[in-house]
Design a protein around this nucleic acid. Structure first.
Length: 873
RNA sequence: GCGGGCGUGGUGGAACUGGUAGACACAAGGGACUUAAAAUCCCUCGGCCCUAGGCUGUACGGGUUCGAGUCCCGUCGCCCGCACCA
């Protein structure tokens, strides 16, 4: 074979055809081997694959191919998260039907994925907008409805009064609609909800069992669910409330600070606020202003703390001589607790900001450890750490925890307006999941509104409720609403004319069970429970950290809900989770400030002059500014098209580069130099394998002798194999790559120095085989080509992972670094099984140690077995 | 604003549970081969000091420890999420 250059384009296409023709990656459900389910978060078909996809799918493919080689029956499917807003935006902008736009994108992206050479079972592919998929989703919805997991209630949406349409949070920019620029209002609509709150406690507790999830994701989910133990306290009104209520009910997690109470706060949406606003113009204006901030928690929290004094007053439950004013405040959420709070400014930053603005009292009641009670005051920073209660009557001197308990006990036993003054309550931050979307391109909610029977589920035999194709986006709003006939149907209950629900489902619903559907993609029910229970949970799920909370939490809820309706029998969908980092790239900009424009990497050339990098435009030679490194995005034009890279260098090179260097959980910077380095490595491996086959074909080496150079190389082979195996097991792709580089250096040296004898030749052949097998999960095409060149008659995609000879890993001596006072001053080589005493004696006998000691005894001699020795003088 | 994370040479990074900081790679510089270029191979490569060698160094400032990139406190910078983007 000699040294012709490796032609990636020709080789990759050839092997992809072979895999395809042989159905190598088609998985059958009844295979007797142990199962392993690898899944990467499926892509939204935005138009073209981007580098983030390449990274994500390259990682998943390594796991899939590695586990396959290790003897597992691997399920590795792919599909499309295909409903969503971009298709509607495209329809509005380019007059293209969302369905056509979506399926064209899918076709393009499927081709792009195929040239990556992924070991996917394409026979299981589906898109969430396939009628076959959303039919089953409607069926699941009806089962959830029957099981009491679905209900309707009023909820707020962002309303664009000019476009007459509901806006997503991302479409609201500084309180205005992104297209119309109109001030956004809030509107209440009756919407569909999933009762995820039924599972708050379970979803929280079960996080403990997810030991193969990143700690940060588990922590984020815990905080998101937000369990808090607190107290529901009823404050008696000192002035009559407009609603006729005798008491104002609040929720607090800090009853210990009750003596620091300065005012009461109501959400702008609280019934009392709304009632008062009826004949208070100032308050009404304020509430309207709050409603223009938007519905997102972020917007509400970031807004300046503001409020209006209602003139109402309540009595302090522990000291009736104190009356507290009641404010309507913009930072209080109606969805959390009771929509009302008591404010203790000294120990809550939001309350403090508010109190300072309106000149309300700030009375500290928690004293920091060691502080002087007489001198302690709170200025602009609330004190939220631990301390001792003071200024608080019977609570003085107690710890926070004890004071909480004391207040709870006391208030529980008190009565106001014929009921206990307070009750203990466990509160969750997690809210029910609103799934209604007033949009066309989503799964229709299969219910019918009948004037006589009310809301009626569609009959199972009438499914699917199919999206009509004859719609247009000439006008804003939901095309389903104004379709001339689609809404018209008959009531499944009474048979009279009735109207269909026009809301479609949140696309998070689509992605909350696709992993289960892959186990039986053609089943005429949502799942085949046997298949689902056999394959699930997903053993390794890989995707972006941006999904750490919502998608993963919804999928966990869905799995429980599906268990409840008998679709499958497990709670947790994802056993192992891995969140990979983003792909970033330098940015380039021509011109300054507002007149500047972003320039794509393909348009420029980089040169180095006197150690400084300069970028110039390819066509005009004009200088371009090199900017910061940012996440690849269309808006900054710092994207690199994977197809271009694969055309130039091949899929293996692109995959290898995505896996080398950067740890997979961290961001990776795409650089041209890096790709070229990867490409050179591809060539290097090919050349090395060529040399080995040339040099060793004359000999018949088959004697695994174990001494000299042959032994050294075999040790390196088995050590590398052991290390790479465990790196791949733990998704340490970059570490595996570094070890493979080292290994290639070692093999090259052995080959260049000349193959000495049969034993050495055996070792070189073994090393070559190991090398090819170790790169196979990452660069499968190159590996197949090398494997074939090495004379194997099977394909490497079906070859078994080699096994490590443990005997070759054992070392008989060890080199200890010797520290003097914590600084390394030399080394000690000694038998690996030397006792602590022997190591100590040998250390003290070393020249530089004796010199440092100057005849004295060491103050301390620390020997960490197999690690290090530290002499303290 | 709240929650979560990250920060190591010119660059990407390595360093298992607190134990030799900079493995491996990229870039750069020097050399070999070549008519020349590409490719390939060899050498150097955190900073400072005069070498042997030493000092210093993991965003910044403190602390715990025989020993800190790793643990703790504070500061700065960047990134992700915040429930209708996917």
């Amino acid at each position: 074979m000699a040294t012709e250059r490796y032609n990636a384009r020709e080789v990759e296409a050839r092997w992809q055809k072979i895999w395809n023709d042989k159905d190598v990656f088609v998985t059958v459900n009844d295979d007797p081997r142990d199962k392993y389910y690898v899944l990467e978060m499926f892509p939204y078909p935005s138009g073209r694959i981007h580098m983030g996809h390449v990274r994500n799918y390259a990682m998943g493919d390594v796991v899939a191919r590695f586990k396959r080689a290790r003897g597992f029956n691997v399920l590795h499917p792919m599909g499309w998260d295909a409903f969503g807003m971009p298709a509607e935006n495209a329809a509005m902008q380019n007059k293209v039907h969302p369905k056509d736009w979506t399926y064209e994108n899918i076709a393009t992206m499927r081709d792009q994925l195929k040239i990556m050479g992924l070991s996917l079972d394409w026979s299981r592919e589906f898109a969430t907008c396939d009628v076959g998929y959303y039919t089953q989703q409607q069926r699941l919805f009806l089962k959830f409805l029957e099981a009491g997991l679905v209900y309707r209630k009023n909820a707020k949406v962002n309303w664009d009064p000019v476009d007459m349409t509901v806006l997503a949070n991302e479409q609201v920019i500084d309180g205005r609609g992104w297209r119309s620029g109109a001030l956004v209002e809030q509107r209440e609509l009756t919407q569909w909800f999933f009762k995820i709150s039924d599972y708050s406690e379970d979803l929280l507790d079960a996080i403990e069992t997810l030991d193969r999830w990143p700690d940060k994701v588990r922590l984020m989910q815990k905080n998101w669910i937000g369990r808090s133990e607190g107290l529901r306290v009823r404050f008696e009104f000192a002035t009559p409330a407009p609603t006729g209520d005798k008491t104002l009910e609040i929720f607090t997690t800090r009853p210990d600070t009750l003596f620091g109470a300065s005012f009461m706060g109501l959400s702008p949406d609280h019934p009392i606020s709304v009632k008062l606003a009826e004949d208070n113009a100032e308050l009404k204006a304020f509430i309207d202003e709050c409603r223009r901030v938007g519905t997102s928690e972020e917007a509400i929290e970031k807004a300046e703390k503001k409020g209006i004094n209602t003139g109402l007053r309540v009595k302090h439950p522990l000291d009736s001589s104190i009356e507290l004013p009641v404010y309507v405040a913009n930072f209080i959420l109606m969805d959390y607790g009771t929509g009302a709070i008591f404010a203790c400014p000294a120990h809550d930053q939001r309350d403090l900001d508010f109190a300072r603005k309106y000149d309300l009292p700030v009375r500290p009641v928690v004293l920091p450890k060691g502080a002087d009670a007489a001198a302690f005051s709170v200025d602009d920073e609330a004190f939220t750490d631990d301390g001792t209660i003071f200024n608080s009557d019977f609570l003085d001197g107690l710890s926070i925890a004890d004071a909480k308990e004391a207040v709870k006990k006391k208030l529980e036993d008190m009565n106001v307006d014929g009921a206990p003054q307070a009750e203990r309550q466990v509160n969750y931050r997690l809210r029910d999941w609103g799934i209604s979307r007033q949009r066309y391109w989503g799964c229709p909610i299969p219910v019918i509104h009948c004037d006589d029977c009310g809301v009626v589920p569609e009959k199972d035999e009438n499914l699917p409720v199919e999206l009509p194709h004859d719609i247009n986006f000439d006008k804003p709003g939901n095309p389903l609403d104004r379709h001339p006939t689609w809404r018209d149907t008959t009531c499944p209950k009474c048979g009279k004319p009735a109207k269909r629900e026009t809301d479609t489902m949140d696309t998070f619903v689509d992605s909350s069970w696709y992993f289960a559907r892959f186990t039986a993609p053609d089943c005429d029910q949502p799942t085949d429970p046997d298949a689902a229970n056999g394959w699930l949970p997903v053993d390794q799920y890989i995707g972006g950290i941006e999904h750490a909370i919502l998608h993963l939490l919804y999928s966990r809820f869905f799995t429980r809900a599906m268990q409840k309706v008998g679709a499958l029998d497990l709670q947790e969908p994802f056993k192992g989770l891995f969140t990979q980092g983003m792909v970033t790239h330098e940015t380039y900009r021509q011109g300054e400030g507002a007149n500047g424009r972003w320039v794509s990497p393909a348009e420029i050339r980089i040169e180095e002059v006197d150690g400084n990098r300069h970028a110039t435009l390819l066509d005009s030679g004009e200088e371009v500014t090199i900017g910061s490194i940012e996440k690849m995005s269309k808006s900054k034009k710092n994207t690199v098209d994977p197809t271009d890279i694969i055309d130039t260098y091949g899929a293996d090179t692109a995959r290898w580069f995505m896996l080398s260097d950067s740890p997979p959980e961290r961001d990776v910077i795409w650089t041209e130099d890096g790709v070229q380095g990867a490409w050179r490595f591809v060539q290097r491996v090919w050349r090395l394998i060529g040399e080995i086959t040339d040099k060793s074909e004359l000999r018949g080496g088959s004697a695994p002798e174990t001494d000299g150079k042959a032994l050294d190389l075999r040790r390196a082979s088995h050590k590398t194999l052991a290390a790479v195996s465990s790196d791949l097991e733990g998704l340490g792709f970059n570490r595996a790559v570094a070890r493979i580089y080292e290994f290639v250096n070692a093999i090259s040296k052995a080959v260049n120095d000349g193959i000495e004898d049969d034993a050495h030749e055996y070792a070189v052949r073994e090393a070559a085989n190991f090398l090819v097998q170790m790169i196979a999960p990452m660069m499968p095409h190159l590996a197949e080509e090398c494997w074939s060149a090495l004379g194997h008659d099977n394909i490497i995609s079906e070859a078994k992972w080699p096994s490590v000879d443990e005997a070759l890993l054992v070392e008989d001596s060890i080199t200890y670094p010797i520290q003097i006072n914590g600084k390394r001053r030399g080394e000690l080589e000694i038998a690996k099984d030397a006792s602590k005493e022997e190591v100590e004696a040998a250390t003290l006998a070393l020249d530089f140690v004796r010199k440092a000691l100057e005849g004295a005894q060491p103050k301390k001699l620390i020997v960490v077995p197999q690690r290090i020795v530290n002499v303290v003088v």
